[in-house]
């Protein structure tokens, strides 16, 4: 794990490729939804398929630039900015998939830029830095009140603060998401009003029980 972090930082390239993959995927979906390309003749009908293949190619390139890092089981206050960015990318993608928004773009660069040691401030900072991008209204509604973004961010920070073994890592992320969903209205209200005290209180209340 340590040796990987000593390699040259390929994050800008990886981030650019992720952005390209996102655009290709979203473009392909839009084509399929709006044009009914399956009914078009000849080459035009292959547009969605071409977009999908290009998206797969971009995914492969992203993976080849640097293998996906498993989220480290270190607690939040032990993470470096770089480790935090890598961990939150993988974890947020997992949570967004679980919440029904797998196609959303997660910016690792923004996650690094948002880094702060205080969890409540970090939650707000991740929103401010737009770590989650390209969230469509119908995807946001997968969580009641359109609170997908704050709930996903809260879930990942809850997971990072919870005591857990390596073997429990995935299960703890899953239950952190359950808890965030169960408290979605309170989390959304606290985050929307940037109420640090309420966000802190929610973390303090939930972290021991993940």
């Amino acid at each position: 794990m340590t040796s990987l972090f000593q390699q040259p930082d390929v994050l800008p390239l990886r981030e650019a490729l992720r952005g390209l993959r996102f655009l290709l995927r979203r473009g392909g979906e839009t084509l399929a939804e709006t044009l009914g390309v399956e009914n078009l003749p000849g080459p035009a009908g292959d547009l969605a398929e071409i977009a999908e293949k290009a998206s797969e190619l971009a995914s492969g390139v992203v993976r080849s630039v640097l293998p996906q890092l498993p989220p480290p089981p270190e607690p939040l206050d032990h993470l470096t900015q770089t480790q935090f960015g890598a961990a939150i990318y993988v974890a947020l993608r997992t949570v967004l998939k679980r919440l029904g928004a797998p196609g959303v773009l997660v910016s690792e660069t923004s996650a690094r830029a948002a880094w702060q040691a205080d969890p409540a401030r970090l939650a707000l900072s991740l929103v401010e830095h737009r770590v989650i991008r390209g969230l469509l209204a119908h995807a946001a509604e997968q969580v009641p009140g359109g609170a997908l973004e704050p709930v996903a961010i809260f879930a990942v920070l809850l997971w990072l603060q919870a005591a857990r073994s390596d073997a429990e890592n995935e299960a703890v992320l899953d239950t952190a998401t359950d808890l965030a969903l169960a408290k979605a209205p309170e989390i959304a209200a606290a985050m929307a009003s940037a109420d640090l005290a309420r966000i802190e209180a929610l973390f303090a209340r939930l972290v021991p029980h993940v």
Binding site: A171, V172, D174
Partner: peptide, 9 residues
């Protein structure tokens, strides 16, 4: 039992 990971499992 007061941890959701155990309770859920």
């Amino acid at each position: 039992v007061r941890r959701l990971r155990w309770f859920k499992s």
